[in-house]
Structures are given as C-alpha cells and as structure tokens.
C-alpha cells in the first residue's frame, strides 16, 4: 500500500501549552519544597552544634560516627555517647572543618536523589524536562537516563540497601531517646518525652518511604514472574506494593519530618523549646 509521509507538529516553545489549569503550581511547589529542604539540611549539617538534647540525636547527624570536642562548640554536652567510633580522629587535617553530618548525609541524600519518585519530580521542577505534562520544554536535545551522567541513576538499589540499614540506626535512636540524664547526678532514667515521639514518628515515616521503594519492591519479589510460589516473598512483595502506592506521600511526609525532627531537637538544645516529659 502506498504511504504518504506526513509531517510531525513542530516542537512547542518553552512553557507553551493550551492547558488552562494552573499546571505550574505543582511544579513550583516541588521546587520550593525540595529547595527549602536542601538549604535547611545543608545549613543544619554545617552548624555542628545543637544536634542533640538529652537522649535525642538529630537524624541529620545519625549515625554519629565521631564526636567533636565539646569545649570547642556549644550545645554538645553528652553528645559523645551517641558516637560509634569515639572522638574526632587525630589524623583529620586541621584545615578541613570536621562536620560529622556531612560524613553520613550522602547516603540518605543519594537514596532520595536517585529515587524514582524524586527523579520525576525534580526533572520537572528543576530541569523543566518537561515543566509539566503537555507543556513545552526549554531543551532542543535529550538523552534521558540512557547515557552519562543520568545513567548513574541506575545505582539507586545500592542506596536503597544503605537506607534500610539507616532505619535500624534510627530505630536505635528512638530507644536512646527513652533515656534521660539527671543533670545534677548524671543518673539515667527511663522516660518518654515529646522528642521521643518526634523521633519515633521520624523512623516510622522513613520506614514507610524506604520500604515502599521501587527497587526494594523489585529485589524482594518483583523480579519474579511467579511470586505465588513463595509465601513469605509474596507477603513482603504485597506489603511493599501497598506502601509503594503512596510512595509520593511518604516521600514528602518523611522529608518534612526529618527536617522538623532536627529543628525540634535544635530548639530544645538552644533552650527555645521545653521538651515535655510524657512519662
């Protein structure tokens, strides 16, 4: 059959669309939300003070691999008990500021940056590729995640393995948050404060986000065509799928709560907030 080759419609200009809804609103919201979080967490990670209070340790500093000299900074009294490997290593070059948060934040940061949900969100909000569905984009060429640098996104599952380990560490932080020190005697006693609840919610939201990860869903069962054969695998896959359905919601909830948890502990440490003891 003879075929006529018809031309394709030319590429629309940047932002050009016949959509009449406020399509730019969710894109702008994502831009503001993610930018705000990145700015706050970078600032918090560089403060190197007021990241712990009583048994509470900010998730921005957890796990605390080393503690820095408490005499040199403020708000760190007692922080050494959170450190896994003792004080700041003596071999650390004096010219480089020792920032324990930056030693660990690359792991959860890498997990979020390579997350399938966030990828779609920030490609739209930051790279405008596209600004939103059926809206003209600013780029004339495109290579997607096929070649360098975005092909690196395929590393996501390795960050996911690390993120799962972080959940155990953050759960341990909740346990530590149940022990309060009497400033007069130095004796430890069990209790639950508002900060304990904040930390518990933090690990809960992060678990809902991490355990609904697309890569986790794949490695625990999605790679199989026949899932029904193994009952435990089937249950895990189903649970993961259930969380995955709300992955975006958990991604945002956990993001906001991580920031809030650091803020709450910071404010308690600075004496702005008074932590309420429930038990």
């Amino acid at each position: 059959m003879a075929q006529t080759h018809l031309p394709l419609a030319p590429q629309r200009g940047y932002g050009e669309t016949t959509r009449k809804d406020p399509w730019w609103l969710p894109t702008l919201g994502t831009f503001i939300g993610l930018s705000g979080f990145i700015v706050y967490m970078t600032w918090a990670g560089m403060q190197n003070e007021h990241f712990s209070y009583q048994g509470y340790l900010s998730p921005a500093y957890s796990p605390l691999l080393f503690w820095t000299d408490p005499e040199g900074v403020t708000g760190l009294a007692g922080a050494e008990r959170f450190a896994y490997f003792g004080p700041q290593p003596s071999w650390w070059p004096g010219a480089i500021p020792f920032l324990p948060a930056l030693l660990i934040l690359w792991a959860p940061g890498g997990f979020r940056i390579t997350c399938y949900y966030y990828r779609g969100a920030y490609y739209k909000a930051f790279w405008q590729s596209p600004p939103n569905c059926a809206v003209g984009k600013p780029h004339k060429t495109y290579s997607g995640e096929r070649s360098f640098p975005l092909i690196i996104q395929n590393i996501h599952r390795y960050f996911m393995y690390l993120a799962v380990v972080f959940l155990f560490i953050l759960a341990h932080d909740v346990y530590l948050g149940m022990w309060f020190i009497d400033p007069a005697t130095g004796a430890k006693s069990f209790g639950i404060g508002l900060g304990t609840i904040v930390l518990a919610l933090n690990v809960t939201f992060l678990s809902a986000y991490t355990l609904g990860c697309h890569s986790l869903r794949h490695v625990i069962g999605g790679f199989k065509d026949r899932i029904s054969g193994a009952p435990i695998r089937k249950s895990l896959y189903k649970g993961c799928t259930g969380l995955n359905k709300n992955h975006m919601r958990w991604a945002w909830t956990s993001l906001v709560w991580v920031g809030f948890t650091d803020f709450y502990i910071r404010m308690c440490s600075m004496g702005v907030f008074t932590d309420i003891r429930i038990i």
Partner: peptide, 30 residues
C-alpha cells in the same frame, strides 16, 4: 532509558493503568 519517569503517561491513561509504577519502573529494574 529515555524515560525520565515524569508519570505523564499514567496521568492521562483513560483505563487507569499504573503505567510508570507497575510497567516501566519494573522493566527498568529488570
């Protein structure tokens, strides 16, 4: 690999197939 997961395909599907989460991403993972 060209797909950058913007989920526009899922949004417009009149049959409400979860194209990105249930088809494209699992294939990308494979």
């Amino acid at each position: 690999g060209y797909c950058n997961i913007t989920k526009c395909c899922t949004k417009v599907c009149p049959e409400h197939i979860t194209i990105t989460d249930n088809a494209i991403i699992p294939l990308k993972e494979r």
